[in-house]
Amino acid sequence: MDALIFKAAIFVILFAVGWGFGRHAERKHLKELEAQEKRLAYIRLDSSRFKTSDDFGQLVSSNVVISHDYFKYVIANIQNFFGERLTSYESVVERARREAVVRLKLEAEKLGAAQIMGLRLSTTELGMQGGMVEVFAYGTAIRSP
């Protein structure tokens, strides 16, 4: 009986440590994303497909793959069992989307562009249990001649 209690205690401690480190890493990533989004806010995003212009355009793309942590995996399995929304995965998808857009803007910035036209985002679930998400972002970076 003592061995079972010891194993349970070790599991709870390791689970809590993993949750703490995962939460810290996620918050750090969100702060970095917010800072980059503010810095790159001058690059406008437009999802329209067609625009007639004499401005120079070049295809830009970016992608990012983000995985969940073990804590989110356990919570998602519990939510899935009860048929609830997988809110723990929603945060992973949101972070991946924001990161892909930031990387896309960084590519456009290298070209001296002030706008990205025809922005498209493609999301793919990777892994057997849906543990990772890839977001591919692309559009046309527009800069004046």
Rank of each mutant, 00 (worst) to 15 (best):
S122Q: 11
A114R: 03
K110P: 00
F6K: 15
A16M: 04
H29I: 05
D69G: 10
V135I: 15
F50Q: 08
R143H: 02
V92D: 01
R103T: 04
K28M: 10
R98H: 03
Y42D: 12
E107H: 09
T140L: 07
R98Y: 02
G139D: 07
A96D: 01
E107W: 05
F82H: 08
R98K: 13
L45G: 09
H24D: 12
T123M: 11
K38C: 00
V64F: 08
K72Q: 06
A41L: 07
A113M: 06
N80S: 15
A25P: 02
V93W: 03
T124Y: 09
E32Q: 10
L14V: 02
N80L: 14
T140M: 05
A137S: 11
S47N: 12
D55Y: 13
R85F: 14
R98M: 01
L4G: 08
I43V: 13
M117N: 06
G18M: 01
Y138M: 07
M117P: 00
K51Q: 09
V17Y: 06
L111R: 08
A76V: 02
E26D: 14
A3C: 00
R85S: 10
P145A: 02
A100E: 13
E90N: 06
F11Q: 15
E94D: 11
A96L: 01
F11V: 03
I116T: 04
F6A: 14
E125M: 13
I13D: 00
V133P: 07
A108V: 11
T140S: 01
D54A: 11
V12L: 09
G131F: 05
S48Y: 08
T52N: 12
I43W: 05
R27Q: 10
F81A: 11
G139H: 03
I142C: 00
K28S: 11
V93Q: 04
A41V: 09
Y89I: 05
I13E: 01
Q58S: 14
G118P: 02
Q115I: 00
F81P: 07
Q36I: 07
D69R: 01
E99R: 14
V93C: 02
L126E: 09
Y73Q: 03
E94F: 06
H29E: 15
D69N: 15
N77P: 02
L30T: 00
A25F: 14
K72R: 07
S88W: 08
F82C: 05
G130L: 05
G127A: 09
Q58K: 10
R97W: 00
K72Y: 02
A100G: 11
F71H: 04
I66K: 08
E107I: 02
Q79M: 10
E26I: 03
E125K: 15
I75M: 13
G131Q: 12
K51F: 13
A9V: 13
D69M: 01
A76T: 04
D69T: 03
R98Q: 05
G57F: 06
A114S: 08
